[in-house]
Design a protein around this nucleic acid. Structure first.
Length: 420
DNA sequence: TCTGGGGTCCTAGGACCC
DNA sequence: TCTGGGGTCCTAGGACCC
């Protein structure tokens, strides 16, 4: 036992359920096993490995997917089961250590340094987790084990499907440097292409590229970060819970005229979704950002930062409308829009008292002394209470509830929402 | 036949203050 | 009158991730 031992041991796990939504569907309906399936319809939300073999990918239009794979089976999602089974898998990790950082519905980091004396080496723990998730939940899960989060994440990607990769600290750079740059966290299509311009294709080549060269190519922050990651210097620790820094909602519209009758109800619906989430967590936001995407899929954003935070649906909707109106006025040639989005940031804590009692309403009044703030507060409160008892659909904005073409079910949206 | 939805972080320019 | 510098906040856009 020498002093450096703890620092040179690989104790970070990255666990990632394989083709999660599709695997759940194959679990629930055995007749789907071994077959190419896609969750969704108009758009592919997830594809099984059998479907991926044909080039089917998430986010792909259903029509395109069918072209690539004529025998593709489309299934509508069992979203409640995704929630339940994803949670169950995380719980298995939690049985070994409280140091679990959930990244999304199907993915988490864990640091097992503190529980080796109880459960054995990280490798043994990883094998036990995989066994249990398979036996108790019925799903395949891949795990990477390494000294840092970044390397553990890469290892789990390499392990897929249904595998385990343990990266020995003594040989971690040999492992890392032979891999292509796009496996790195933060290297997407654009960065990959830029790196290719200077002949950098592997992480090893990236590691040996001078800092100034990367900085010029990718900017100071990205340059420094990628160099550090390429040498497996990743300072990030496991964060068991972190709060969201922003929240938003968007709606793809197909092709719609940029007119009031489309924009108003859509923005009200989006504001309703966002503001309701804020109020449910006793939070309020100071910055409102809208995004308008045009027919050619290029988009613009407009934002406004307020002196005081807001959480009222009507207030958020009004501000969003103003921003969108101004954005459209600046682009008079754009007659067709394909998406509207609202997002809020600069989130602040709103004491529970203000949810219970209409105090501090001056914040949300443009003209102090008007009764608008009070009315809005009462209206939000009433809607929130009714939904608490009878569900989201029980009440809403009339013009919005009908005639909205939902390309994606609301339950699917909820799966992606982070805890405020 | 043009591509869903919810997030994080970075950059660059400008306003404003000291 | 012109000159310099640092820090913070806001805005718009973009890359990336699941």
């Amino acid at each position: 036992m020498n002093e450096e031992q703890p620092e040179t041991t690989a104790t970070i796990l990255h666990a990632d359920l394989d083709a999660f939504y599709a695997s759940v569907e194959q679990l629930l309906d055995p007749s789907l096993r071994g077959k190419p399936i896609a969750v969704g319809g108009g758009v592919v939300l997830a594809a099984s490995y059998e479907a991926k073999a044909f080039g089917v990918r998430g986010g792909m239009p259903g029509r395109r997917a069918r072209e690539l794979c004529p025998q593709l089976i489309f299934v509508s999602g069992h979203f409640k089961d995704y929630q339940r089974l994803g949670g169950a898998a995380i719980k298995v990790l939690n049985d070994f250590t409280p140091l679990v950082e959930r990244i999304s519905i199907d993915e988490a980091f864990a640091d097992v340094a503190g529980c080796i004396h109880l459960f054995g080496s990280p490798a043994e723990i990883a094998r036990a987790i995989r066994r249990r998730v398979r036996a108790e939940i019925g799903l395949p899960i891949s795990i990477g084990v390494a000294r840092t989060k970044h390397l553990a994440k890469i290892a789990s990607q390499v392990a897929k499907p249904d595998g385990l990769v343990i990266v020995d600290p003594d040989t971690e750079l040999d492992f890392l440097h032979n891999l292509p740059v796009e496996l790195m966290w933060g290297v997407g299509p654009v960065t990959k292409a830029r790196l290719a311009q200077i002949g950098v294709l592997t992480i090893g080549q990236l590691a040996k590229t001078p800092g100034w060269s990367l900085e010029r190519l990718l900017g100071p922050a990205a340059g420094e970060k990628l160099t550090a990651l390429a040498w497996n210097r990743d300072p990030r620790e496991i964060k068991t819970q972190r709060r969201a820094r922003s929240a938003g909602a968007q709606s793809a519209l197909g092709r719609k005229p940029a007119e009031e009758r489309i924009i108003r109800p859509t923005l009200r619906h989006l504001a309703d979704r966002v503001a309701t989430r804020l109020r449910a967590k006793s939070r309020a936001a100071r910055t409102v950002t809208v995004r308008v995407r045009f027919a050619d899929l290029h988009s613009i954003t407009r934002s406004m930062t307020l002196d005081a935070p807001i959480s009222s649906t009507a207030m958020l909707a009004d501000i969003a409308e103003e921003l969108v109106r101004a954005a459209l006025a600046e682009n008079p040639d754009e007659k067709v829009i394909s998406l509207l989005a609202i997002s809020v940031s600069h989130l602040e804590e709103r004491p529970q008292l203000q949810l219970e009692l209409p105090l501090g309403l001056e914040d949300e009044q443009r003209r102090p002394g008007s009764k608008k703030g009070m009315r809005r507060w009462l209206a939000d409160r009433a809607v929130d209470l009714i939904r608490d008892r009878f569900g989201w659909q029980a009440v809403g904005y009339g013009s919005v509830m009908f005639g909205m073409s939902r390309s994606v079910p609301d339950e699917f949206r909820e799966l992606a929402e982070k805890d405020l």
